[in-house]
Design a binder for these strands. Sequence first.
DNA 1: GTCTATACTCTGATAGAC
DNA 2: GTCTATCAGAGTATAGAC
Lengths: 216, 216
Amino acid sequence: MPAPKKPAAESSGTPARGSRSRIQQRNRQIILDAALEVFSTHGFRGATLDQIAAQAGLSKPNLLYYFDSKDAIHRDLLTQLLDTWLDPLRMLDPEGDPQAEIMAYMRRKLEMARDFPRESRLFANEILQGAPRIESFICNDLRHLVDEKAQLITEWTQAGRIAPVDPYHLIFSIWALTQHYADFAAQIRMIRGAQHDPLDGAEPFLAQLYTRLLSP
Amino acid sequence: MPAPKKPAAESSGTPARGSRSRIQQRNRQIILDAALEVFSTHGFRGATLDQIAAQAGLSKPNLLYYFDSKDAIHRDLLTQLLDTWLDPLRMLDPEGDPQAEIMAYMRRKLEMARDFPRESRLFANEILQGAPRIESFICNDLRHLVDEKAQLITEWTQAGRIAPVDPYHLIFSIWALTQHYADFAAQIRMIRGAQHDPLDGAEPFLAQLYTRLLSP
DNA sequence: GTCTATACTCTGATAGAC
DNA sequence: GTCTATCAGAGTATAGAC
């Protein structure tokens, strides 16, 4: 979701061989940015190249000069996204203070909802569709990481360092509560009025919630 | 989301005049059920009449004998959904015990996630798309109800009957936590294994969470 | 690198036989 | 009421001029 760690290299673009010129790099990024906007709003099938081209300010054939296909654009976005999607949970430190670690994880996820709401919605769209394109990621990478961190949380509860909670539901609750502010931002804005940022007051509320939940 | 309170009457179907025959009623319901499956998975634009027809076991022209258009089917589904979407929150009783009322609201929403996951995903898809088709519902009906209940919760906190919490974020948290089990069920199944029901253990966890959050 | 023109497929919707 | 056949438009993708 942040800028790709490396220049994304040869993921699935068109010319692919050799290093790309500055204008190539720039246009690819413009297209990916426009595509993120459209895919995250309408889902893969609901999005059209026309919309993406209009959003990018380029012609439709020009899009397909930089990417092999609609699918290739979408695949690039997902690859970038998944590349960093696990980082916040991965940072949960077995050596840290349990309650502080979980609170910090919640805050990292909340920051992602604030800074990368479109990426969150892109992910939500994939899951709503049954996750056909990211099934192996979820069943392998994500699942193993969650199992590992759930085990860690269980050890913390057994040591009496946090209140006894179901570790899986604890993790799911952090996902639900933080991603909600990105995925359902349209609803929150309509309810609270457009002048409010949807995330106003979210951090104190979630801090209060998890402090009370986790205190032994 | 449950069966429409009245037979849905003349919402937008085709023959519309007079009472519908038994087979009409039945086929309309088969189509709506199939359409719910497809729209809730792919969103409005991502869904096709071919998919809906296949799911319903009817031919595509036959679909359009019962409904004027793809849009009409979708509109009927949304109308049915919104008709009951507010009920759980509306039932929050000013005369009841504050903590018990909020816990009961959470449980009603969790039951809806369990019993009507496709309706929840249909709603989620609409919000992800920016809520173009249900904007007036959210800005008016939903907003006013939320304002009213937030006011009630504020009174409860000021009376010291529950812990001081931001009432809007409290309501959002119930939405996020309960709907997550419907909207992200695919992800939860992949992480916990298909043999678990995604909602296993959710109720005790949420009860624990809100008990701790709300106790004065 | 970017555009216009176009091929071809998919999709929503209609006509008309049965 | 249900089907086959079909149309018009939108959608992805390619060809080829500039």
